[in-house]
Write a protein that binds this DNA or RNA. Structure first.
Lengths: 253, 253
DNA sequence: CATCACCAATTTGTCAGACTATTAGAAAGT
DNA sequence: ACTTTCTAATAGTCTGACAAATTGGTGATG
């Protein structure tokens, strides 16, 4: 019997997986779920997952879908498959935690404060220099993108989805403007930290500093090509964000 | 007929893919090949690949193997599949070029000088600070790993595979010692830049500076917990490596 | 004429079941 | 004690079928 038949005829009994992550592709949903479980420590380093036959029958999905999910995880360095041995979780140091999707999974459940601070340190290291590079190498399209993002930020504030997206867009445009492809690809990782910190701040609702002036200062330094000022204003922007986030974390704990 | 039968009975006719990348898993080999082709620009941004039926029959592999290869590429942000539309190459800015595997594919064919310089800029931004952090946070295991790597480097020199590996091990141990998980996961990217620069230097054979003293200086600063000195020695190490690499590139062009 | 609802075709997504390749671990031989 | 050979378990591959999703057109309808 083909399992599609069941659904095609309007079945009521949906498996947990299909129900919980009904939207999207099945292999993607499964990769998501397994990824989160690994990050949470449900499956530990070196541990081997149930074999394909067992897993697919337990989850009530086909072996192919299961295998495609495993390929995704393997591509992100989280698992490793070998005949006879099975599929095992690799050492944590080999996981591509800066992969945008992995970061998303990480934030699915509340990440450790340590990790959030790690991400802020990364911002503190990379973003000021990226801003300095941007001041030297920015192009009209970048300027325009940043300018537009700032306008949206001012109109929408961080309370709306569009406003938060504009914040991300600003940082993304800045990283692109740095003219360094390797640096720019860290943009999504930076973005994760930004998203998380704003979420924290919103929850405590204590410190609602208007973010626009800080951002505008960075923007203007870059626009006029002032390398030193771009670095400095960006550094202080990140430091302020870090301090606010730390305070919010203290309040919540 | 089952294609495995052909091979099982000792066939002589191997398909190009199987022949060229005979070792390893088929899906991995195909992902490798497609990945390299995308990075080289054989398939451009926005371009759609031939559909699954056509591709798998052209390459003489099963649809499943082909699909698993595509899942790998998709996991690295390089392609995107949708029903009816097909599988298309995503915008370059969305590729995870810092993914170790992708970096490997990048170096499969000679990468652009621009990209190598980008990687060095990334090193210059991250490694000195990582060294400074390591000076504060290093643990006995890290010290030992770095010490051991240095000993091997001194014995083997960069002419041997073991020596080059020790160089990578040193930088990896250092990044781990930084105590920042996000930073540490950049280790493999850094490693790629290191590998590439030594390859350049070896080809020109012009400047064979002994790398051990530089590395030892960094090591000792970290071992005694001297944050400022760790940062400084590491910065000058990277600057020297960059200068040598640039000179080598000039000679070759 | 414009707009909206519906239909058809294309492509990926999923399924099922069979067979092969690989390899870790056990067993046998030296 | 060491090496070789076997065995069994597991991922890897293949095939062919059908389902779902999406695009783009086509026709009904205002």
């Amino acid at each position: 019997m083909n399992a599609y038949d069941k659904r095609g005829r309007g079945d009521i009994l949906e498996t947990p997986l299909r129900h919980h992550l009904g939207q999207g592709r099945l292999h993607g949903a499964l990769a998501h779920r397994l990824g989160v479980d690994i990050l949470r420590g449900v499956y530990r380093q070196g541990q081997t997952l149930p074999n394909e036959m067992e897993s697919s029958s337990t989850l009530e999905i086909s072996r192919s879908a299961y295998r495609e999910a495993i390929r995704i995880l393997a591509a992100k360095g989280m698992v490793e498959s070998r005949p006879k041995t099975g599929t095992r979780v690799t050492a944590r140091t080999r996981w591509n935690i800066l992969d945008p999707e992995v970061l998303g999974w990480m934030f699915e459940t509340e990440p450790s404060e340590k990790f959030i601070l790690d991400l802020f340190e990364l911002r503190l290291i990379t973003e000021p220099t990226a801003a300095a590079f941007a001041a030297q190498r920015r192009q009209p399209a970048h300027i325009e993108a940043m300018d537009h993002a700032l306008i949206v930020m001012a109109q929408q504030t961080l309370a709306t989805e569009a406003g938060r997206q504009a914040d991300l867009d600003f940082h993304d445009a800045l990283m692109q403007a740095s003219g360094n492809e390797a640096l720019a690809s860290l943009s999504s990782s930076i973005g994760a930290a930004v998203t998380w910190s704003t979420r924290y701040k919103q929850r405590t609702a204590a410190l609602d500093r208007d973010p626009v002036p800080d951002h505008r200062a960075v923007f203007e330094a870059i626009a006029r090509g002032d390398e030193g000022d771009a670095r400095w204003t960006m550094e202080s922007l990140v430091r302020l964000a870090l301090r606010d986030t730390q305070r919010s974390m203290e309040k919540l704990s």
